[in-house]
Design a protein around this nucleic acid. Structure first.
Lengths: 346, 346
DNA sequence: AGGCTATAGGAAATCGATTTCTAAAATATT
DNA sequence: AATATTTTAGAAATCGATTTCCTATAGCCT
């Protein structure tokens, strides 16, 4: 799409205008507005009054150029309107406002190409830091290296690539998954299936590992056929559940790495006239709003997404921004919590 | 909170570096990179190759300062993580990317103070346009006037103030509300209550008006007591429904201006051992995901939020940006649709 | 009083692009 | 072949702040 040129806006009052009308130097105006100790309070007052009078507005662009940083943070997520990410963004925003920073948001719609473009845009915008959760497609990391090459801080969260060294904020996915299976086991389920996402993502590897570990620890059989790696939608969850529930050795419980998948499993049960929790246990991930509203209500792993957003931003302000030399690069694990509801309680 | 100073980033390659290493003028480099017709394709190629070789990155900040506009659009919403707004933002983002624009997002958390600050920040950031949906608290519009004073375009959407002249994008709330009541009436409900939001917001005035008009047109009685203006949460919906359903003249249906309120009404019914749709009809607004998942499923007015986002952005690019002189200021009405589900079907 | 330090304010360079104006070179015209 | 025209490239100003360096004055000390 062509970029339409824009007309220049009408001129605003600048520090030069203030300087002239007060008969002082522009540099003094700048210092006064920045509350520099090298300016008397008399002049500060003069400048502030005049600034108000003439409706002066600070031009962040000019300041950014001169200073070399922007107090803008770029966020890249797969989908802005998935509640998990929307909550994270909301949490990030809250903390950023406290620190007088602004937020540029990009969504990749799970496309690597859009992710690469988003990174490019943010680098060009001179953001101070990029917070990113990778798209499902992303397997290469050249664009992430670019962030480093341009000396921009960055933090990966949730869907991260271990191939690149960076601060990260994630749930303890392995533990969460382990606990979910443990919970199912304690409720007496024996044949537990795992419906996960693409195995090239760390996130899903860990959840699968937690699942496997728990099976072993609780003496449950591991069926290769019960493990599926590309189930990330309601539709695919339903389809795969329908399939598995009509084989000889059937699962009696499902660990789904998304509540939407849980929903699909539930639909499958209804279609097969099975009931949850009696015949089949279900537990999902994310603790979406709807999990407590469906019949039966769906158990889920609460990932504390809003808090995760806050922690991501706080990590930036408390550590990353300060560029501590030789500081070791941190991984923050955000707590999770099994929310036990009807679908896994028998 | 104190603003911590930041270290300046390491220097990047600039057009001056490219110019020097090619033995041409910086201005020529700029023109080459901007594909100006005043530069030969030979030099363009040279410059592009060298730019790639040296990993040149365009500094948007410098360009913005010089050009006087930024290709950045500011969005202000009450809550980023309410699905209605999250969808709108996602729609806006999609269209903005097509037009090579970036998005700065601010949330007000329904606070006027935060809204005013957000506007200030965006003006200082030199955004080309501000897209805003007002907080519940907002009754004054001085900050919106500021946007105009600084010659920044702006578009109000959903929650707008008619007190200030601007482009607007809204649902046809009156019609939507009218149709919802009409639908309830056709299903045989006679005593329809209205649960709306603060009456100082246009949005809710219109929905109330549509409700009243429909009552009249369908020959239904208007009960002053059935009209409530401060019901915007599940809790308040439940509470008020409990109250009304235990009076002498009870409503047999509820028009709620939010699905969350519908949910509260549903809870009230369960508590009172009433059932929907048999005893009481319910219809809400926004067509939230969960409305199709609860039992009984909840009827709702689909507001096409994602499409609304797209239309807002498209309005900007097709009309507002071009600053057509004496163009009349437009209001776009986004279609709505009654989604009939169990809660209103008897 | 003389000299020294601290302080306040100003001059000028700077950030990195864009853009206007000018001039040289290439091409076209008669 | 001489002149007119068009192209192409460069010089320099500009956007609006910040920041460094410098100077003049006020305040301090013995």
């Amino acid at each position: 799409m062509a970029i339409v040129p824009m007309a220049k806006r009408e001129k605003r009052i600048t520090i030069y205008d203030l300087a002239k009308s007060l008969n002082i130097a522009p540099s003094s105006v700048s210092k006064a507005l920045n509350n520099s100790h090298a300016i008397s309070s008399k002049i500060k007052k003069m400048v502030e009054d005049k600034a108000k009078e003439l409706n002066y507005v600070h031009n962040t662009n000019a300041a950014n150029l001169r200073r070399g940083f922007t107090r803008i943070i770029g966020v890249i997520v797969p989908k802005i309107n998935e509640s998990f990410f929307a909550n994270i963004i909301a949490g990030i925003e809250k903390v950023c406002v406290q620190h007088q920073h602004s937020l540029i948001i990009c969504q990749t719609e799970e496309s690597l190409e859009k992710e690469v473009n988003a990174v490019q845009t943010l680098i060009r915008q001179n953001v101070d830091c990029i917070l990113i959760s990778l798209s499902l497609e992303t397997q290469s990391t050249a664009h992430l290296e670019e962030i480093k090459n341009n000396h921009i801080h960055f933090i990966q969260f949730d869907r991260i690539s271990p191939a690149i060294d960076s601060y990260t904020v994630v749930n303890d996915n392995e533990a969460a998954s382990y606990q979910a299976v443990a919970h199912l086991a304690k409720q007496g389920y024996q044949n537990i299936a795992y419906f996960g996402g693409p195995a090239h993502l760390n996130l899903y590897q860990e959840r699968k590992q937690g699942y496997k570990n728990a099976l072993k620890d609780f003496g449950l059989t591991f069926y290769e056929d019960f493990v599926k790696d590309e189930i990330i939608s309601t539709a695919s969850g339903k389809q795969e559940a329908l399939h598995l529930l009509q084989t000889n050795v059937k699962p009696d419980a499902f660990l789904c790495t998304s509540d939407y998948v849980s929903l699909g499993v539930l639909e499958a049960l209804q279609q097969l006239n099975l009931s949850s929790p009696k015949d089949v246990g279900i537990i999902g991930f994310a603790n979406e709003m709807f999990t407590q509203l469906v019949q039966p209500s769906l158990s889920s792993v609460n990932q504390f997404s809003y808090e995760m957003g806050e922690q991501i931003a706080e990590l930036y302000f408390s550590e990353v921004m300060k560029q501590k030399e030789h500081e070791e690069i941190k991984t923050i694990k955000v707590k999770t919590e099994i929310v036990q509801r009807a679908s896994s309680s028998r």
